[in-house]
Nucleic acid binder design. Sequence first.
DNA 1: GCGCAATTTTTAGCTAATTTTAAGGCAGTC
DNA 2: GACTGCCTTAAAATTAGCTAAAAATTGCGC
Lengths: 225, 225
Amino acid sequence: MRVLLVEDETSIASFIAEGLEEEGFAVDVAHNGKEGLRLALENLAEYDLILLDWMLPGASGIEICRAIRKEDQTVPVIFLTAKDTVDDVVFGLETGANDYLRKPFAFEELLARMRVLLRSSTGEQNTFHYADIELDLVKHQVFKAGAPLDLTQKEFALLELLLRNKGKACRRTRIIEKVWDIHFDHDTAVIDVYINFLRKKLDTPGQPSFIQTLRGIGYRVNDDA
Amino acid sequence: MRVLLVEDETSIASFIAEGLEEEGFAVDVAHNGKEGLRLALENLAEYDLILLDWMLPGASGIEICRAIRKEDQTVPVIFLTAKDTVDDVVFGLETGANDYLRKPFAFEELLARMRVLLRSSTGEQNTFHYADIELDLVKHQVFKAGAPLDLTQKEFALLELLLRNKGKACRRTRIIEKVWDIHFDHDTAVIDVYINFLRKKLDTPGQPSFIQTLRGIGYRVNDDA
DNA sequence: GCGCAATTTTTAGCTAATTTTAAGGCAGTC
DNA sequence: GACTGCCTTAAAATTAGCTAAAAATTGCGC
Protein backbone atom coordinates (compact mmCIF):
# COMPACT_ATOMS: atom_id res chain seq x y z
CA MET A 1 0.00 0.00 0.00
CA ARG A 2 1.45 3.30 -1.10
CA VAL A 3 0.39 6.61 0.39
CA LEU A 4 1.10 10.20 -0.57
CA LEU A 5 1.26 12.60 2.36
CA VAL A 6 1.22 16.33 1.65
CA GLU A 7 2.01 18.21 4.85
CA ASP A 8 4.24 21.24 5.38
CA GLU A 9 4.90 20.98 9.09
CA THR A 10 7.87 18.65 9.19
CA SER A 11 7.23 17.42 12.72
CA ILE A 12 3.70 16.31 11.88
CA ALA A 13 4.77 14.93 8.53
CA SER A 14 7.47 12.72 9.97
CA PHE A 15 5.25 11.63 12.87
CA ILE A 16 2.61 10.41 10.43
CA ALA A 17 5.04 9.03 7.91
CA GLU A 18 6.94 7.03 10.49
CA GLY A 19 3.76 5.73 12.04
CA LEU A 20 2.42 4.60 8.70
CA GLU A 21 5.69 3.01 7.72
CA GLU A 22 5.59 0.99 10.91
CA GLU A 23 2.18 -0.20 9.79
CA GLY A 24 3.64 -1.38 6.52
CA PHE A 25 2.67 1.49 4.23
CA ALA A 26 5.06 2.98 1.73
CA VAL A 27 4.87 6.72 2.25
CA ASP A 28 5.90 9.56 -0.05
CA VAL A 29 6.02 12.95 1.63
CA ALA A 30 5.63 16.33 -0.03
CA HIS A 31 6.41 19.37 2.11
CA ASN A 32 4.60 22.00 0.10
CA GLY A 33 1.68 22.31 -2.24
CA LYS A 34 3.63 22.53 -5.45
CA GLU A 35 5.61 19.42 -4.77
CA GLY A 36 2.48 17.65 -3.62
CA LEU A 37 0.67 18.54 -6.81
CA ARG A 38 3.58 17.36 -8.92
CA LEU A 39 3.94 14.04 -7.12
CA ALA A 40 0.20 13.47 -7.12
CA LEU A 41 -0.17 14.03 -10.83
CA GLU A 42 2.99 12.23 -11.84
CA ASN A 43 2.35 9.01 -9.95
CA LEU A 44 -1.38 9.12 -9.44
CA ALA A 45 -1.90 5.53 -10.44
CA GLU A 46 0.73 4.47 -7.89
CA TYR A 47 -1.06 5.74 -4.81
CA ASP A 48 -3.64 3.76 -2.90
CA LEU A 49 -4.55 6.72 -0.74
CA ILE A 50 -3.71 10.41 -0.40
CA LEU A 51 -3.47 12.50 2.77
CA LEU A 52 -3.73 16.23 2.23
CA ASP A 53 -3.12 19.14 4.54
CA TRP A 54 -5.68 21.88 4.01
CA MET A 55 -3.42 24.93 4.39
CA LEU A 56 -0.26 24.62 2.37
CA PRO A 57 2.33 26.95 0.92
CA GLY A 58 2.45 26.72 -2.85
CA ALA A 59 -0.90 25.14 -3.65
CA SER A 60 -3.74 24.54 -1.21
CA GLY A 61 -5.04 21.09 -0.40
CA ILE A 62 -8.29 21.93 -2.16
CA GLU A 63 -6.48 22.75 -5.38
CA ILE A 64 -4.56 19.50 -5.20
CA CYS A 65 -7.71 17.55 -4.47
CA ARG A 66 -9.50 19.10 -7.43
CA ALA A 67 -6.58 18.34 -9.70
CA ILE A 68 -6.53 14.74 -8.50
CA ARG A 69 -10.25 14.30 -8.99
CA LYS A 70 -9.96 15.56 -12.54
CA GLU A 71 -7.69 12.63 -13.28
CA ASP A 72 -8.98 9.94 -10.98
CA GLN A 73 -12.33 9.69 -9.23
CA THR A 74 -11.55 6.64 -7.18
CA VAL A 75 -8.36 7.06 -5.16
CA PRO A 76 -9.36 7.87 -1.56
CA VAL A 77 -8.41 11.33 -0.31
CA ILE A 78 -8.39 12.36 3.34
CA PHE A 79 -7.98 15.96 4.47
CA LEU A 80 -5.98 16.71 7.59
CA THR A 81 -6.66 20.17 8.90
CA ALA A 82 -7.00 22.59 11.75
CA LYS A 83 -9.97 24.23 10.11
CA ASP A 84 -13.09 22.99 11.75
CA THR A 85 -16.13 24.97 10.82
CA VAL A 86 -18.89 22.96 9.26
CA ASP A 87 -18.71 24.91 6.02
CA ASP A 88 -15.16 23.81 5.53
CA VAL A 89 -16.00 20.19 6.11
CA VAL A 90 -18.80 20.32 3.59
CA PHE A 91 -16.64 22.17 1.12
CA GLY A 92 -13.86 19.67 1.54
CA LEU A 93 -16.09 16.70 0.97
CA GLU A 94 -17.85 18.27 -2.00
CA THR A 95 -14.46 18.94 -3.51
CA GLY A 96 -14.14 15.20 -3.86
CA ALA A 97 -12.44 14.18 -0.65
CA ASN A 98 -13.60 11.02 1.04
CA ASP A 99 -12.94 11.97 4.60
CA TYR A 100 -11.72 14.74 6.86
CA LEU A 101 -9.78 14.73 10.11
CA ARG A 102 -9.59 17.68 12.46
CA LYS A 103 -6.22 18.35 14.03
CA PRO A 104 -5.20 17.35 16.51
CA PHE A 105 -6.24 13.78 15.80
CA ALA A 106 -5.12 10.50 17.27
CA PHE A 107 -2.95 8.41 15.00
CA GLU A 108 -5.21 5.42 15.66
CA GLU A 109 -8.17 7.29 14.30
CA LEU A 110 -6.30 8.15 11.14
CA LEU A 111 -5.33 4.51 10.72
CA ALA A 112 -8.88 3.31 11.29
CA ARG A 113 -10.31 5.73 8.75
CA MET A 114 -7.63 4.86 6.23
CA ARG A 115 -8.40 1.19 6.64
CA VAL A 116 -12.09 1.78 6.04
CA LEU A 117 -11.42 3.71 2.87
CA LEU A 118 -8.88 1.22 1.61
CA ARG A 119 -11.24 -1.58 2.37
CA SER A 120 -14.01 0.01 0.36
CA SER A 121 -11.87 1.33 -2.46
CA THR A 122 -10.38 -2.06 -3.09
CA GLY A 123 -13.52 -3.84 -1.98
CA GLU A 124 -11.24 -5.19 0.71
CA GLN A 125 -12.67 -7.36 3.34
CA ASN A 126 -11.19 -10.11 5.41
CA THR A 127 -13.57 -13.00 5.18
CA PHE A 128 -16.13 -14.22 2.71
CA HIS A 129 -18.61 -16.97 3.18
CA TYR A 130 -21.28 -19.04 1.59
CA ALA A 131 -23.28 -21.49 3.70
CA ASP A 132 -20.72 -23.42 5.75
CA ILE A 133 -17.82 -22.37 3.54
CA GLU A 134 -15.58 -19.60 4.79
CA LEU A 135 -12.62 -17.98 3.08
CA ASP A 136 -10.23 -15.98 5.23
CA LEU A 137 -7.91 -13.63 3.36
CA VAL A 138 -5.72 -12.82 6.33
CA LYS A 139 -5.12 -16.42 7.33
CA HIS A 140 -5.20 -17.34 3.67
CA GLN A 141 -7.24 -20.37 4.49
CA VAL A 142 -10.58 -21.89 3.68
CA PHE A 143 -12.90 -23.62 6.11
CA LYS A 144 -15.69 -26.05 5.37
CA ALA A 145 -18.05 -26.50 8.31
CA GLY A 146 -15.34 -25.06 10.55
CA ALA A 147 -12.68 -27.52 9.42
CA PRO A 148 -9.61 -26.04 7.76
CA LEU A 149 -9.03 -27.13 4.21
CA ASP A 150 -6.02 -26.81 1.98
CA LEU A 151 -6.55 -25.16 -1.34
CA THR A 152 -3.86 -24.47 -3.86
CA GLN A 153 -3.13 -20.92 -4.93
CA LYS A 154 -5.25 -21.07 -8.05
CA GLU A 155 -8.11 -22.78 -6.28
CA PHE A 156 -7.98 -20.11 -3.60
CA ALA A 157 -7.88 -17.26 -6.09
CA LEU A 158 -10.80 -18.66 -8.05
CA LEU A 159 -12.87 -19.21 -4.92
CA GLU A 160 -12.03 -15.71 -3.74
CA LEU A 161 -13.22 -14.23 -7.01
CA LEU A 162 -16.47 -16.16 -6.87
CA LEU A 163 -17.18 -15.30 -3.25
CA ARG A 164 -16.22 -11.65 -3.64
CA ASN A 165 -18.86 -11.53 -6.31
CA LYS A 166 -21.45 -13.58 -4.49
CA GLY A 167 -24.74 -13.27 -6.33
CA LYS A 168 -23.10 -11.84 -9.40
CA ALA A 169 -22.31 -13.70 -12.57
CA CYS A 170 -18.58 -14.20 -13.12
CA ARG A 171 -17.94 -14.37 -16.81
CA ARG A 172 -15.33 -16.72 -18.16
CA THR A 173 -13.32 -13.90 -19.67
CA ARG A 174 -13.30 -12.09 -16.35
CA ILE A 175 -12.24 -15.23 -14.52
CA ILE A 176 -9.42 -15.96 -16.93
CA GLU A 177 -8.25 -12.36 -16.65
CA LYS A 178 -8.43 -12.10 -12.87
CA VAL A 179 -7.20 -15.52 -11.87
CA TRP A 180 -4.95 -16.50 -14.75
CA ASP A 181 -3.99 -13.06 -16.01
CA ILE A 182 -4.63 -14.08 -19.59
CA HIS A 183 -5.91 -11.12 -21.55
CA PHE A 184 -6.15 -12.33 -25.09
CA ASP A 185 -8.64 -14.79 -26.41
CA HIS A 186 -7.66 -18.21 -25.40
CA ASP A 187 -9.68 -21.36 -25.48
CA THR A 188 -8.71 -23.38 -22.53
CA ALA A 189 -10.53 -25.69 -20.19
CA VAL A 190 -8.53 -24.77 -17.08
CA ILE A 191 -11.47 -22.94 -15.63
CA ASP A 192 -13.65 -26.02 -15.92
CA VAL A 193 -11.00 -28.13 -14.31
CA TYR A 194 -10.60 -25.79 -11.38
CA ILE A 195 -14.32 -25.39 -10.90
CA ASN A 196 -14.34 -29.15 -10.70
CA PHE A 197 -11.57 -29.11 -8.08
CA LEU A 198 -13.50 -26.63 -5.94
CA ARG A 199 -16.69 -28.59 -6.24
CA LYS A 200 -14.97 -31.78 -5.22
CA LYS A 201 -13.41 -30.16 -2.19
CA LEU A 202 -16.26 -27.94 -1.07
CA ASP A 203 -19.62 -29.26 -2.18
CA THR A 204 -21.81 -31.05 0.29
CA PRO A 205 -22.48 -34.53 -1.12
CA GLY A 206 -26.05 -35.05 -2.20
CA GLN A 207 -26.64 -31.32 -2.49
CA PRO A 208 -26.53 -29.22 -5.63
CA SER A 209 -23.18 -27.56 -6.12
CA PHE A 210 -22.57 -24.22 -4.45
CA ILE A 211 -21.29 -22.99 -7.80
CA GLN A 212 -23.92 -22.51 -10.46
CA THR A 213 -22.91 -23.03 -14.04
CA LEU A 214 -24.16 -20.31 -16.35
CA ARG A 215 -23.79 -22.05 -19.66
CA GLY A 216 -22.15 -19.82 -22.22
CA ILE A 217 -21.53 -17.13 -19.61
CA GLY A 218 -19.52 -18.38 -16.67
CA TYR A 219 -20.31 -19.22 -13.06
CA ARG A 220 -22.11 -17.78 -10.07
CA VAL A 221 -22.25 -18.46 -6.35
CA ASN A 222 -25.76 -17.61 -5.28
CA ASP A 223 -26.60 -14.77 -3.00
CA ASP A 224 -28.93 -16.42 -0.61
CA ALA A 225 -26.66 -18.08 1.90
CA MET B 1 -32.65 6.35 -2.85
CA ARG B 2 -33.89 4.60 0.25
CA VAL B 3 -32.37 5.17 3.67
CA LEU B 4 -32.85 3.41 6.99
CA LEU B 5 -32.53 5.67 10.02
CA VAL B 6 -32.25 4.08 13.46
CA GLU B 7 -32.56 6.78 16.14
CA ASP B 8 -34.44 6.72 19.41
CA GLU B 9 -34.74 10.43 20.10
CA THR B 10 -37.88 11.33 18.17
CA SER B 11 -36.98 14.99 17.79
CA ILE B 12 -33.67 14.17 16.14
CA ALA B 13 -35.19 11.35 14.12
CA SER B 14 -37.91 13.51 12.61
CA PHE B 15 -35.50 16.38 12.00
CA ILE B 16 -33.23 14.12 9.98
CA ALA B 17 -36.03 12.19 8.28
CA GLU B 18 -37.79 15.34 7.15
CA GLY B 19 -34.60 16.90 5.95
CA LEU B 20 -33.68 13.84 3.94
CA GLU B 21 -37.15 13.54 2.50
CA GLU B 22 -36.90 17.11 1.29
CA GLU B 23 -33.73 16.05 -0.48
CA GLY B 24 -35.62 13.29 -2.24
CA PHE B 25 -34.67 10.31 -0.10
CA ALA B 26 -37.19 7.71 1.00
CA VAL B 27 -36.61 7.28 4.73
CA ASP B 28 -37.63 4.43 7.03
CA VAL B 29 -37.28 5.24 10.71
CA ALA B 30 -36.79 2.78 13.56
CA HIS B 31 -37.04 4.20 17.08
CA ASN B 32 -35.22 1.48 18.95
CA GLY B 33 -32.52 -1.07 18.39
CA LYS B 34 -34.78 -4.08 18.08
CA GLU B 35 -36.94 -2.52 15.43
CA GLY B 36 -33.88 -1.23 13.65
CA LEU B 37 -32.31 -4.65 13.58
CA ARG B 38 -35.51 -6.20 12.27
CA LEU B 39 -35.98 -3.62 9.50
CA ALA B 40 -32.32 -3.77 8.56
CA LEU B 41 -32.26 -7.53 8.19
CA GLU B 42 -35.66 -7.85 6.55
CA ASN B 43 -35.12 -5.30 3.81
CA LEU B 44 -31.37 -5.10 3.62
CA ALA B 45 -31.29 -5.24 -0.15
CA GLU B 46 -33.72 -2.32 -0.29
CA TYR B 47 -31.52 0.22 1.45
CA ASP B 48 -28.94 2.34 -0.28
CA LEU B 49 -27.56 3.66 2.99
CA ILE B 50 -28.05 3.15 6.72
CA LEU B 51 -27.80 5.73 9.51
CA LEU B 52 -27.29 4.28 12.98
CA ASP B 53 -27.42 5.88 16.38
CA TRP B 54 -24.70 4.53 18.66
CA MET B 55 -26.60 4.33 21.93
CA LEU B 56 -29.96 2.69 21.49
CA PRO B 57 -32.47 0.92 23.70
CA GLY B 58 -32.97 -2.69 22.60
CA ALA B 59 -29.84 -3.33 20.54
CA SER B 60 -26.87 -1.04 20.21
CA GLY B 61 -25.83 0.47 16.91
CA ILE B 62 -22.70 -1.64 16.99
CA GLU B 63 -24.71 -4.84 17.22
CA ILE B 64 -26.87 -3.75 14.33
CA CYS B 65 -23.86 -2.80 12.29
CA ARG B 66 -22.22 -6.15 12.90
CA ALA B 67 -25.41 -7.97 11.95
CA ILE B 68 -25.65 -5.93 8.76
CA ARG B 69 -22.03 -6.58 7.83
CA LYS B 70 -22.52 -10.29 8.21
CA GLU B 71 -25.10 -10.19 5.46
CA ASP B 72 -23.93 -7.39 3.26
CA GLN B 73 -20.46 -5.91 3.04
CA THR B 74 -21.31 -3.12 0.66
CA VAL B 75 -24.21 -1.00 1.90
CA PRO B 76 -22.78 2.20 3.40
CA VAL B 77 -23.31 2.65 7.14
CA ILE B 78 -22.89 5.94 9.01
CA PHE B 79 -22.88 6.20 12.79
CA LEU B 80 -24.49 9.18 14.48
CA THR B 81 -23.42 9.59 18.05
CA ALA B 82 -22.64 11.73 21.04
CA LYS B 83 -19.71 9.55 22.01
CA ASP B 84 -16.57 11.21 20.91
CA THR B 85 -13.53 9.63 22.36
CA VAL B 86 -11.06 8.39 19.81
CA ASP B 87 -11.40 4.78 20.91
CA ASP B 88 -15.06 4.81 20.14
CA VAL B 89 -14.49 6.17 16.68
CA VAL B 90 -11.90 3.55 15.98
CA PHE B 91 -14.15 0.85 17.31
CA GLY B 92 -17.08 2.04 15.26
CA LEU B 93 -15.09 2.10 12.06
CA GLU B 94 -13.51 -1.27 12.69
CA THR B 95 -16.98 -2.67 13.21
CA GLY B 96 -17.56 -2.10 9.54
CA ALA B 97 -19.09 1.35 9.47
CA ASN B 98 -18.05 3.65 6.64
CA ASP B 99 -18.29 6.93 8.49
CA TYR B 100 -19.00 8.55 11.82
CA LEU B 101 -20.66 11.82 12.79
CA ARG B 102 -20.44 13.39 16.20
CA LYS B 103 -23.59 14.97 17.54
CA PRO B 104 -24.43 17.73 17.28
CA PHE B 105 -23.70 17.81 13.58
CA ALA B 106 -24.87 20.09 10.86
CA PHE B 107 -27.42 18.58 8.54
CA GLU B 108 -25.37 19.76 5.59
CA GLU B 109 -22.42 17.79 6.77
CA LEU B 110 -24.53 14.66 7.03
CA LEU B 111 -25.79 15.20 3.49
CA ALA B 112 -22.30 15.77 2.16
CA ARG B 113 -20.98 12.61 3.76
CA MET B 114 -23.92 10.60 2.56
CA ARG B 115 -23.35 11.78 -0.99
CA VAL B 116 -19.71 10.77 -0.86
CA LEU B 117 -20.65 7.26 0.18
CA LEU B 118 -23.52 6.93 -2.27
CA ARG B 119 -21.39 8.15 -5.14
CA SER B 120 -19.22 5.08 -4.87
CA SER B 121 -21.97 2.55 -4.49
CA THR B 122 -24.29 3.48 -7.34
CA GLY B 123 -23.74 2.33 -10.86
CA GLU B 124 -25.66 2.37 -14.10
CA GLN B 125 -28.94 0.64 -14.67
CA ASN B 126 -28.56 -3.08 -14.47
CA THR B 127 -32.08 -4.29 -13.93
CA PHE B 128 -35.12 -4.17 -16.15
CA HIS B 129 -38.65 -5.17 -15.30
CA TYR B 130 -42.13 -5.68 -16.55
CA ALA B 131 -44.90 -6.47 -14.08
CA ASP B 132 -43.52 -9.20 -11.79
CA ILE B 133 -40.71 -10.08 -14.18
CA GLU B 134 -37.24 -8.78 -13.40
CA LEU B 135 -34.05 -9.16 -15.37
CA ASP B 136 -30.77 -8.57 -13.56
CA LEU B 137 -27.73 -8.05 -15.77
CA VAL B 138 -25.16 -8.30 -13.00
CA LYS B 139 -26.50 -11.49 -11.51
CA HIS B 140 -27.35 -12.64 -15.00
CA GLN B 141 -30.58 -13.94 -13.64
CA VAL B 142 -34.29 -13.48 -14.21
CA PHE B 143 -36.93 -13.41 -11.51
CA LYS B 144 -40.63 -14.11 -11.86
CA ALA B 145 -42.60 -12.93 -8.84
CA GLY B 146 -39.34 -12.89 -6.89
CA ALA B 147 -38.44 -16.47 -7.71
CA PRO B 148 -35.17 -16.95 -9.56
CA LEU B 149 -35.45 -18.54 -12.95
CA ASP B 150 -32.77 -19.86 -15.20
CA LEU B 151 -32.86 -18.81 -18.80
CA THR B 152 -30.46 -19.94 -21.46
CA GLN B 153 -28.15 -17.47 -23.09
CA LYS B 154 -30.35 -16.86 -26.10
CA GLU B 155 -33.50 -16.61 -24.03
CA PHE B 156 -31.77 -14.14 -21.77
CA ALA B 157 -30.47 -12.05 -24.64
CA LEU B 158 -33.87 -11.93 -26.30
CA LEU B 159 -35.63 -10.95 -23.10
CA GLU B 160 -33.03 -8.28 -22.46
CA LEU B 161 -33.61 -6.78 -25.89
CA LEU B 162 -37.37 -6.73 -25.41
CA LEU B 163 -37.20 -5.20 -21.95
CA ARG B 164 -34.59 -2.63 -22.90
CA ASN B 165 -37.03 -1.50 -25.55
CA LYS B 166 -40.13 -1.67 -23.40
CA GLY B 167 -42.97 0.06 -25.21
CA LYS B 168 -41.17 0.00 -28.52
CA ALA B 169 -41.66 -2.44 -31.35
CA CYS B 170 -38.75 -4.81 -31.93
CA ARG B 171 -38.65 -5.73 -35.58
CA ARG B 172 -37.72 -9.26 -36.53
CA THR B 173 -34.71 -8.10 -38.51
CA ARG B 174 -33.47 -6.14 -35.50
CA ILE B 175 -33.98 -9.12 -33.22
CA ILE B 176 -32.15 -11.49 -35.52
CA GLU B 177 -29.29 -9.02 -35.79
CA LYS B 178 -29.00 -8.23 -32.10
CA VAL B 179 -29.58 -11.64 -30.60
CA TRP B 180 -28.40 -13.99 -33.32
CA ASP B 181 -25.90 -11.72 -35.02
CA ILE B 182 -27.23 -12.66 -38.43
CA HIS B 183 -26.96 -9.70 -40.76
CA PHE B 184 -28.05 -11.10 -44.08
CA ASP B 185 -31.51 -12.10 -45.11
CA HIS B 186 -32.38 -15.36 -43.58
CA ASP B 187 -35.72 -16.99 -43.19
CA THR B 188 -35.77 -18.83 -39.96
CA ALA B 189 -38.40 -19.56 -37.38
CA VAL B 190 -35.93 -19.46 -34.56
CA ILE B 191 -37.32 -16.23 -33.17
CA ASP B 192 -40.79 -17.72 -32.93
CA VAL B 193 -39.46 -20.69 -31.07
CA TYR B 194 -37.65 -18.53 -28.56
CA ILE B 195 -40.59 -16.20 -28.06
CA ASN B 196 -42.51 -19.34 -27.27
CA PHE B 197 -39.87 -20.42 -24.75
CA LEU B 198 -40.06 -17.06 -22.99
CA ARG B 199 -43.83 -17.11 -22.91
CA LYS B 200 -43.87 -20.57 -21.46
CA LYS B 201 -41.43 -19.65 -18.74
CA LEU B 202 -42.64 -16.17 -17.90
CA ASP B 203 -46.31 -15.67 -18.73
CA THR B 204 -48.86 -15.75 -15.96
CA PRO B 205 -51.36 -18.51 -16.80
CA GLY B 206 -54.80 -17.21 -17.72
CA GLN B 207 -53.40 -13.79 -18.58
CA PRO B 208 -52.54 -12.47 -22.02
CA SER B 209 -48.87 -12.87 -22.83
CA PHE B 210 -46.48 -10.16 -21.70
CA ILE B 211 -45.07 -10.19 -25.23
CA GLN B 212 -47.34 -8.71 -27.87
CA THR B 213 -47.12 -10.10 -31.38
CA LEU B 214 -47.02 -7.42 -34.05
CA ARG B 215 -47.98 -9.40 -37.08
CA GLY B 216 -45.66 -8.75 -39.99
CA ILE B 217 -43.44 -6.54 -37.82
CA GLY B 218 -42.08 -8.26 -34.75
CA TYR B 219 -42.80 -8.12 -31.02
CA ARG B 220 -43.29 -5.63 -28.22
CA VAL B 221 -43.44 -5.65 -24.43
CA ASN B 222 -45.90 -2.97 -23.39
CA ASP B 223 -44.95 0.13 -21.50
CA ASP B 224 -47.65 0.24 -18.92
CA ALA B 225 -46.26 -1.94 -16.16
C1' DG C 1 21.91 -28.63 -9.71
C1' DC C 2 18.92 -32.88 -9.04
C1' DG C 3 15.02 -35.42 -7.84
C1' DC C 4 10.61 -35.62 -5.88
C1' DA C 5 6.17 -33.98 -4.85
C1' DA C 6 2.69 -30.82 -5.55
C1' DT C 7 0.47 -27.96 -8.60
C1' DT C 8 -1.03 -26.49 -12.93
C1' DT C 9 -2.33 -27.18 -17.65
C1' DT C 10 -3.63 -29.88 -21.63
C1' DT C 11 -6.09 -33.42 -23.81
C1' DA C 12 -9.95 -36.12 -25.08
C1' DG C 13 -14.09 -38.79 -24.70
C1' DC C 14 -18.43 -38.25 -22.77
C1' DT C 15 -22.78 -36.20 -21.39
C1' DA C 16 -26.27 -33.13 -21.09
C1' DA C 17 -28.11 -28.70 -22.24
C1' DT C 18 -28.98 -25.58 -25.75
C1' DT C 19 -29.94 -24.25 -30.23
C1' DT C 20 -31.78 -25.00 -34.64
C1' DT C 21 -34.59 -27.16 -38.06
C1' DA C 22 -38.74 -28.96 -39.63
C1' DA C 23 -43.57 -29.73 -40.06
C1' DG C 24 -48.41 -29.55 -39.20
C1' DG C 25 -51.95 -26.69 -37.33
C1' DC C 26 -54.11 -22.27 -36.27
C1' DA C 27 -55.35 -17.43 -36.83
C1' DG C 28 -55.60 -12.98 -38.85
C1' DT C 29 -56.23 -10.42 -43.16
C1' DC C 30 -57.73 -9.44 -47.54
C1' DG D 1 -61.95 -19.08 -48.17
C1' DA D 2 -57.29 -18.71 -49.43
C1' DC D 3 -53.04 -16.92 -48.35
C1' DT D 4 -49.63 -15.65 -45.19
C1' DG D 5 -47.42 -15.41 -40.96
C1' DC D 6 -47.17 -17.17 -36.47
C1' DC D 7 -47.59 -20.96 -32.93
C1' DT D 8 -46.33 -25.26 -31.10
C1' DT D 9 -44.13 -29.49 -30.72
C1' DA D 10 -40.81 -32.85 -31.56
C1' DA D 11 -36.64 -34.35 -33.12
C1' DA D 12 -31.94 -33.48 -34.89
C1' DA D 13 -27.71 -31.05 -34.62
C1' DT D 14 -24.59 -28.61 -32.20
C1' DT D 15 -22.03 -26.94 -28.46
C1' DA D 16 -20.39 -26.16 -23.83
C1' DG D 17 -19.03 -28.05 -19.95
C1' DC D 18 -17.79 -32.26 -17.00
C1' DT D 19 -14.45 -35.57 -15.67
C1' DA D 20 -10.44 -38.32 -15.43
C1' DA D 21 -6.03 -39.02 -16.64
C1' DA D 22 -1.73 -37.74 -18.56
C1' DA D 23 1.70 -34.25 -19.42
C1' DA D 24 4.08 -30.18 -18.15
C1' DT D 25 5.63 -27.08 -14.90
C1' DT D 26 6.94 -25.30 -10.53
C1' DG D 27 8.86 -25.34 -6.00
C1' DC D 28 11.46 -27.32 -2.40
C1' DG D 29 14.82 -29.99 0.20
C1' DC D 30 19.02 -31.98 -0.20
